[in-house]
Design a binder for these strands. Structure first.
Length: 484
RNA sequence: GGCGCGGUCGCCAAGUGGUAAGGCAAAGGUCUGCAAAACCUUUAACGGCGGUUCGAUUCCGCCCCGCGCCUCCA
């Protein structure tokens, strides 16, 4: 399916094909995103998915849509309860640290804050109300104080993941990993009775804690309505998590729960799935500590279209870093270099072409590779035009504006990596120099060069280099600097 | 076993029934006190075997290889 002019097409897991975006509320797109479970630091695989949904929402906004996005934070689950108990602290206190880390991480990666970032433990009442609704319809049963959803009562079960649930009972894998008693192995817990010593809530439906799936249904519908435009998450969540969300929500409301399901493919590392046993499990902080920049990681994670598995490698990081450099160098050149007066209509046309191609790429199921190619094409053509002196002074602001527009989606052009890393307490250079110090040293070096004191000028160049500052002597005699 | 995804230059990665984007790397060049950086240019690719077709990397079949999901999972 080819996109018509201005149409945004997206791949919907439910139909397994691309469909045009058609929000329920004109001019506004409502998105629910499965956020992190804060039992530990999020890993880069998580951020692949979060960066995808960030690119998506940024593109919607560039297209003039209002975005209402809800992201949940799952701050109660088995691992959290277990870890908090082991640490001897209340779960709320245990998760605080990881929520804070998550917020810092998304800030470092320029992932925009969703309009609503909501915690599961702040919505117990909403979950209880939803469970009561399901109980009233006779879709649940109690067992050992826990409440289960009876899947046999929902005939569309499996429509998202296309899974054959009838085979699950005799499945090749173990079926019942839970210690709770269930009528049918396929049924899932809406509400779990407390085990001894565990944190629990005293509610109208009894003491206990919510199951994972009910959290998302309750919070999504509370903020976004019974039917949501877009629900995003990692591919692994399609079954059973999203399947269960559909069963609960549609049973409760009788309405379609989600119009478009968007699933981001997984990231693998050196050809293998991330796992702790293989020792290839990276958090963002691991990578920052190894010297990689936030912009490098963001670029790498967004450069591969979201429905393609991304093989995360050291080489990939180097390539991403250099690609970002090329874009930043281009903008720096546009801003610093002096061009002949006037404007070249050809340049204006060329920039408009890039703009259209960038947009078309993203409108085609968020094809970031296509969108990036449009930018790099422009960079090369404009650089060549500048070399040929066909690029004029009035063209520069137009080109800068185009790059800034592209960056409203990419968010990698502004060189604030050093600042972001320092904010996380990670020092990036051996000697930290203030911008004013750097500029003073450059001025001193320029003076030395003018008096042909190359010994002194090379000394300053080395000193700056040791502090992570790279100098670039340009053709017109000016000097640019940047962080390595 | 069931379901699904993918194999395009050295690496990453678009795309198409008829001249195969882009990035990184490499090579050459421009610039420079030197150097670096930057920029330009160039090179080079559709897993295998059949089939359909005037023509297949693109459609169909089989095979080989890699990966994912099948109630922890982004």
């Amino acid at each position: 399916m080819a996109a018509k002019l201005n149409e945004i097409i997206l791949h919907n897991t439910l139909s397994n094909r691309v469909e045009p975006l058609a929000p329920m509320h004109p001019g506004e797109v409502r998105i629910y995103t499965c956020g992190p479970t804060v039992y530990s630091f999020a890993h880069i695989g998580n951020f692949r998915t979060f960066i995808f949904q960030d690119v998506l929402r940024r593109f919607f906004r560039l297209r003039g849509f209002r975005v209402l996005q809800v992201m949940n934070i799952t701050d109660v689950d088995d691992r959290i309860i277990h870890n908090a108990a082991a640490a001897g602290v209340p779960i709320r206190e245990y998760t605080e640290k990881y929520i804070k880390a998550f917020l810092e991480d998304i800030d470092a990666l320029h992932i925009e804050m969703p309009e609503e970032l909501v915690r599961a433990t702040d919505h117990i009442d909403d979950m209880v109300a939803l469970i009561e609704k399901l109980q009233a319809k006779g879709l649940t049963y109690n067992s050992d104080g826990s409440i289960y959803f009876r899947i046999s009562k929902f005939h569309d079960y499996g429509k998202l993941s296309k899974i054959d649930v009838s085979g699950m009972q005799a499945g090749a894998r173990r079926v019942d990993v839970d210690q709770y008693e269930k009528d049918d192995a396929r049924d899932f817990a809406l509400w779990k009775s407390p085990k001894s010593g565990e944190h629990f809530w005293e509610t109208r439906i009894g003491a206990g804690r919510p199951g994972w799936h009910i959290e998302c249904s309750a919070m999504a519908m509370k903020y976004l309505g019974d039917t949501i435009d877009i629900h995003t998450g990692g591919v692994d969540l399609a079954f059973p998590h999203h399947e269960n969300e559909i069963a609960q929500s549609e049973s409760a409301t009788g309405q379609p729960f989600v119009r478009m399901w968007l699933h981001a493919e997984h990231l693998i590392i050196n050809g293998q799935k991330m796992s702790k046993s293989l020792g290839n499990f990276y958090t963002l902080r691991d990578l920052f500590a190894k010297g990689y920049k936030p912009s490098t990681i963001r670029f790498l994670l967004l450069s591969v279209p979201y429905r393609r598995q991304l093989n995360f490698t050291e080489d990939g990081l180097i390539q991403a870093k250099n690609s970002v450099e090329r874009l930043r160098n281009f903008v720096a050149r546009l801003q610093a270099e002096q061009f002949a007066a006037g404007s070249n209509p050809e340049m204006e046309k060329r920039i408009e072409k890039a703009d259209a191609e960038f947009d078309a790429g993203l409108a085609d199921d968020v094809n970031t590779a296509r969108a990036l190619a449009a930018i790099f094409d422009l960079v090369r053509d404009v650089n060549a035009a500048m070399d040929r002196h066909e690029f004029l002074q009035q063209d520069a602001p137009r080109a800068v504006a185009a790059m800034e527009k592209f960056d409203s989606v990419l968010a990698v052009l502004v060189d604030d990596d050093d600042q972001k890393l320092r904010g996380l307490g990670i020092a990036t250079s051996k000697v930290q120099l203030a911008v004013s110090q750097i500029e003073a040293l450059i001025e001193e070096r320029n003076a030395a060069r003018r008096s042909r004191d190359f010994k002194r000028s090379d000394e300053i160049r080395r000193q700056l280099s040791d502090s992570g500052i790279l100098l670039e002597d340009t053709k017109d005699g000016s000097v640019r600097w940047k962080y390595k």
